[in-house]
Structures are given as structure tokens and as C-alpha cells.
């Protein structure tokens, strides 16, 4: 597989151990709770739950060049965040992998910042290739970017993350029908299956049901994994890379816990879009102690 070989061989920090990734993830979680606390707004729950995935992609899996940032990303693996509200984890991982200064995380959601509440290209923040926030659009965008790579003879891979509640948007299923039909086999999509959305459990609200069966019926290769354990997640991504290039896109259903890593936030939809207060921040940071913490 051209895709997987390229990614594994040339990812800038491919040699990172799981222990090192764990350290980075804890630092990222510190960033997340501090960012949302500072402006008393933002979305910590999904951000904490997807930390392992974004750290894995940016620090282990993807071949990418943070500096200078190239919008077209020719020859690079690309990542798209469709559920844009988990911008805190995206911004932290981008900053910590070298796209922009870590100190800029302090501007999150503030006036005149490049770190908008939801990711945007408008302020030219390096690492962001599309605005997201209004849900359901990222799978289409990622599929288009993957098809551009094919036209360009570019062997790299396009990754995209969606929320599970987001799958209630109809456009997702338009794209889900399109990508296998057009043999977009340089595309690996992830669903953050934390089972929660703003108004409660996804199965009570949207009735998502058997997602594996649904995506398989649409023609995807579907893998399932624990999204909060680096070993299993990395093994699944590697398996997924091995399935690319065979005429079929790959969908990874990733079981996560919303708020993972901060005990009082874990598993509850109540922390979807609520920031911790001073006391809760102190408790969270105590649980997220990391050797040589480099808080912004």
C-alpha cells in the first residue's frame, strides 16, 4: 500500500512511543480545560474524548509539514475536523505539532483571534483548511480533497473526523453513498462514537442504531476500536491504512468517552459545551499532571 508505507516511513515523529504520545495527550488535555475555562465557553467533552485520535494522527500517523503551511497540502496527509465544535483539541494539537505558537492558545475565542470558536480559514490560522461548525459538511469536503489528490497523482491519505450525533445530518449520508460509489479509497473517516449529544444519549435522540451495518450497507470497509487507548487505536489505524487503495473508503467507528481523562466530566453529555469553573479547573489539572508541563 503506497499510502500506508509513505505515512509510516515519513511521518515527522513516527518514532514516538506510546508513553510519549500519552505525555502529549495529557498536555493537550491540560490545554483544553484551560482554554475553555479562560473564556468560560467552548466544548471540552468531545475535545477530551478525541485527544488520543488527534495526537495519534498528528504525532505518529500523518505525513505532514506544519511549517510553512500549504493550503493545498500536495504530498501531505490531510485531516479535516467535521465536528468543528471540538476546536480546543484541534487547536492544541496543531500548536503543539508546530503549526502556530503554543502561546496563541491563550487567544481562543477572544476578539481579533485566529482561534475562532469554531475552526475557520478566514483568519488564516495555519493547519485549518476548511471552516466547520455547522455540522454534516466535513465528509463531503474530505471526499473532494481525496479526489483532488487522485487527480494530482498524490499518494497521500485524507482523514476526517465526525461526531456521532452529527450523523443525524442528511449530507453525511449523501457523502457516505458517494465515496464508495466513486471508489475514493484514499479516505479514512472516523466517527467519535461517544453516544452523547447536547440533549442526551444519541440512541434516545437520533436512533443511530447499528452504524457498522449502515456504513457496510453503503459500501464502506468498517473497523471498530477503542478511541481512548493508544495501542488499540494505533493498531486499528494501521489496519485501516492496509485497507486503503483497494477501491473502497475506510470508516473507523471509534468508541470514546466524552470528557475522557477528567473524572467528573467523563461519559456525560452535560460537559458537551460547558466550561469548568475555577475549582473544577484545579481538580481537572490535578488529574492531568504531566512531567515537564509546558502550559501556554
Amino acid at each position: 500500500m503506497a499510502q500506508s508505507t509513505a505515512s509510516e516511513t515519513h511521518a515527522p515523529e513516527a518514532t514516538k512511543s506510546v508513553a510519549e504520545l500519552q505525555q502529549i495527550a495529557t498536555q493537550v488535555r491540560r490545554d483544553i480545560v484551560r482554554m475553555v475555562h479562560a473564556v468560560n465557553s467552548g466544548h471540552p467533552g468531545g475535545s477530551l474524548g478525541c485527544t488520543e485520535l488527534l495526537v495519534s494522527l498528528y504525532f505518529k500517523v500523518m505525513q505532514h509539514t506544519p511549517e510553512p503551511f500549504d493550503m493545498n497540502g500536495i504530498g501531505q496527509d490531510l485531516f479535516f475536523l467535521s465536528n468543528g465544535h471540538i476546536s480546543p483539541v484541534f487547536y492544541s494539537v496543531l500548536a503543539r505539532s508546530g503549526y502556530f505558537p503554543v502561546s496563541e492558545l491563550a487567544t481562543f475565542r477572544k476578539l481579533n483571534s485566529r482561534l475562532q470558536g469554531h475552526p475557520a480559514t478566514h483568519e488564516h490560522l495555519p493547519g485549518i483548511r476548511i471552516a466547520s461548525g455547522s455540522l454534516g459538511q466535513g465528509l463531503s469536503v474530505a471526499t473532494g480533497a481525496a479526489q483532488a489528490k487522485k487527480l494530482n497523482g498524490d499518494q497521500s491519505t485524507v482523514f476526517v473526523l465526525m461526531g456521532d450525533g452529527e450523523l443525524e445530518e442528511g449530507q453525511i449520508w449523501e457523502a457516505a453513498l458517494y465515496a464508495p460509489h466513486h471508489k475514493v479509497d484514499n479516505l479514512m473517516a472516523f466517527v467519535d462514537r461517544n453516544g452523547q449529544q447536547i440533549d442526551g444519549p444519541t440512541d434516545k435522540i437520533g436512533g443511530l442504531g447499528d452504524l457498522r451495518a449502515k456504513f457496510e450497507a453503503f459500501g464502506w470497509r468498517v473497523l471498530e476500536t477503542d478511541g481512548n487507548q493508544f495501542e488499540t487505536l494505533l493498531a486499528t489505524i494501521k489496519e485501516g491504512q492496509g485497507l486503503l487503495g483497494q477501491g473502497v473508503p475506510v470508516m473507523v467507528l471509534m468508541d470514546t468517552q466524552m470528557g475522557f481523562g477528567v473524572d467528573f466530566m467523563m461519559g456525560s453529555h452535560k460537559w458537551h459545551g460547558v466550561a469548568p469553573n475555577d475549582e473544577q479547573l484545579a481538580t481537572a489539572l490535578k488529574q492531568l499532571e504531566v512531567e515537564k508541563a509546558s502550559d501556554y
Binding site: N72, R129, A142, G144, A145, A175
Partner: peptide
């Protein structure tokens, strides 16, 4: 969405 994605890559 596909059209927006295709521009990323210079189309």
C-alpha cells in the same frame, strides 16, 4: 462540499 474539497489540491 465536494467542490470545496476539490479546491484543496488546486482544482
Amino acid at each position: 462540499g465536494l467542490a470545496a474539497g476539490l479546491t484543496i489540491g488546486g482544482k
